[in-house]
Amino acid sequence: MMGQSEKLQKIAAEALEQGQVTMVLGWCKKDFWWQAPVAFITDPASAARLVWDPFTVYNPVKYLLDNHHCHEKIGVFVKGCDSRAVNRLLQDRRLEREKVVLFGVPCDGKTDAAKIKAAFPGRKISAVSRVDEKLLVDTDSGTETLPAAGYLLDKCQTCRHPNPVVYDVLAWEKVEPRPGVDDARFVRVAAVEQKELEERYAYWLRQFDRCLRCFACRNVCAACNCRTCIFDQAEPRWIGKASDLADTLNYQIIRAFHVAGRCFECGECERVCPADIPLQELNRKLIKDINEYFGEYEAGLDPNDKPPLGTYRGEDPAGFDES
């Protein structure tokens, strides 16, 4: 039986050979076992570099913004979350559907390398592979088996769309969403909501005090796809450049507002944050409020729907005193 990596390699090689696309974006292995960075494959022979392993978490879709001009058509491997990034770019008119061939990859969740490392303190790990719901960890003192579900990235534990929502080809059969993802979706938001007002401010101050304003959360986000970000502009100067917590709060509030009704919950912002700031607690708060006030809406499912802040109903309720 062909392995999953081989399936991706075959899809990519065929698409390149047949001239259907001139570049394929997928994942490859580099220096470390815990990384599977995005690969840019332009010839069929290199398709063998492609992998599907527990760490292929990176979203290749945003790279299309830099590359789609130079290619007639690009093939992209998309997990559920990545496919919603495609819809995000389509809705934002940053991408045309006919410029891409989408190779859908149903995804049963990616592994959190930190959790694996924590499970084997002091041991050197050389490789991690996955067989169904088991993780096989090769260490300097033999291969260990772990249950995959216990070592998922946090973001994958609340994933409602493990299957691509838009694709041209599907690499293998669709998978079932993990049980309980709907219940887990707003648990962290509710926990913050339950705190007292002052406690909440102190909580967020603690979180954002760590923010380096490295903008990784913005740069990784497919919803943050402006050509020139408002925070990079000099005139008008929307936020100060100095390391002032008030400017950080300004950035974080406006960043969250700019993805309100547009965030498709991939959780990459939180994953890439070097300061471990729980950004999903902010993004999902906005999603929860939008659902409650203006009706259920899930971004990144249909590029032709109307994002909730770009439309209205006369009978909308208000979150303030309308008297």
């Binding site: 934002d92 008119r93 940053r94 796809n225 402006c226 050509r227 020139t228 502009q233 109307k306 994002p307 770009g310 439309t311």
Partner: peptide
């Protein structure tokens, strides 16, 4: 137009 991303959010409103 230097800053415009062409996502047409403006048009919607």
């Amino acid at each position: 137009i230097k800053l415009c991303s062409g996502d047409m959010s403006c048009l919607a409103v």
